[in-house]
Design a protein around this nucleic acid. Structure first.
Lengths: 237, 237
DNA sequence: GATGGTCGACGAACGGTGTTCGTTACGAAC
DNA sequence: GTTCGTAACGAACACCGTTCGTCGACCATC
């Protein structure tokens, strides 16, 4: 379009101010909050920083590593109880509260929880969190081995719950009329309610008798049940 | 290479014998067992059937739907207890056995469990399975509402557990020297053991005191713990 | 037996993805 | 003032899911 002299072709801009890992992670989080996890592509994150995808690989080995760093950055925002020893209040309540906080924080960044399912998180913020969880379990008198594996179990549950929520509400932004798109595309898998309403009481007697209970209840109550089940299942009898 | 007349260019072959949804799903399962979930691409599945990717869209609306069909086909192979009423043996044991069977079956198809995390499964085989699980919970005297949500919880756990296992053992095949590749690529995230060995006892006292327990134990024992925690957490006290 | 119409297998292409490579500008050290 | 390592960058590679229009093969009808 412009004259060839005007061409900025290879290497025009004077190499931007340096990025840094932190800047890359923050840009990723911005894209995540705005458009959801699937939109966190190397290209979009790079565009957020007004550069090309290749530039990100100086600070991040892979997309997956970027996601791990983002996940840890999110977990780092969860307020943790003070270290030395938790006040002696009911350990179950304290643990349930902590897990609830984590889940809510993760849900504010839709989909990021999936990353924790891929590999047991080992970032610094996760280690802090695990230590508190383990401490609470031990304080509750849970067997050492059971507490250790319980820690794992809780992390797994957190990942699963936050992943599921993210799929239910596909992303918030994604530009204008995202809701429209989410509804009309998707090839319309029959909803769970429809499936439950249509099932044969002969073949699925229990499901048919419980349709109301299966679809009932606010998400918060379901979340609370899951956490309660985990804790009371782990607690010493 | 050959003479232009030999060219099969556009539309040479006489349109193959028809495929059918079943054939597509089976081909997908073959690729899955051989190379893992990520390798189940429309192109690879099509190649398995000696055709092009476009041909699959006659039987399957999307890749995601193909995966759902594959998941249901796998679940259909789990033997279920007879319908009318389960023998009165301990419902906990029966339920634990059922869940264990499901997990093992899913683990034989690495990664497919992830699909169930994406959306609550509503395929026929899953409905059968849910009905049995719900029946066992109700037989155990679990409250109706709690049993219904517990069903959900168990499905979530199954998905999470099978997803995690799949990532740990990235695929079996993937061609020659898959193990070599898995080790040298991956950009070598520090292993959990290394991380645990390196942590600061001041900052993470409980983790540091439990490294042995955290890494200990066969996978089967961890799986059993998770199932036991869920069941005893759901059971009426 | 010829004919018309429907179904689906197919080639090609589009717009995206993660990642790699070699080049090159910059800032600091000498 | 020159050198030199670091890192931003353009371009490209090999894939991906999905769509479009074409056209061969079969089947119901005349």
């Amino acid at each position: 379009m412009d004259s060839p002299a005007r061409r900025k072709s290879t290497r025009t801009r004077p190499s931007k101010p340096p990025l840094g890992e932190r800047a890359v992670v923050d840009a990723g989080l911005r894209v995540l909050r705005r458009e959801g996890l699937d939109a966190v592509t190397m290209r979009k994150v790079a565009a957020e920083l007004d550069t090309g995808p290749a530039s990100l690989y100086v600070y991040v080995a892979q997309r997956e590593e970027l996601l791990r760093l983002m996940l840890d950055a999110v977990i780092a925002t969860v307020p943790l109880p003070a270290l030395p020893a938790p006040p002696p209040g009911d350990w179950r309540e304290r643990l349930a509260g902590l897990i609830t906080d984590v889940v809510h924080t993760l849900n504010a960044h839709p989909g990021i929880g999936r990353v924790s399912l891929g590999s047991i998180p080992t970032g610094p913020a996760w280690l802090d969190l695990f230590d508190r969880i383990l401490g609470l379990l031990l304080a509750g008198g849970v067997d050492r081995q059971r507490a250790a594996w319980g820690c794992d179990l809780i992390a797994l549950h957190i990942g699963a719950v936050t992943y599921e929520v993210a799929v239910a509400q596909p992303a918030h932004g994604d530009g204008p009329d995202a809701l429209q798109g989410a509804l009309e595309s998707r090839h319309a898998q029959a909803s769970i309610e429809d499936r439950l309403a249509a099932l044969d009481p002969e073949r699925h007697p229990h499901l048919a008798a419980s349709t109301a209970e299966l679809t009932a209840g606010p998400a918060a109550a379901r979340l609370a049940l899951g956490i309660e089940v985990l804790i009371s299942g782990l607690a010493p009898s």
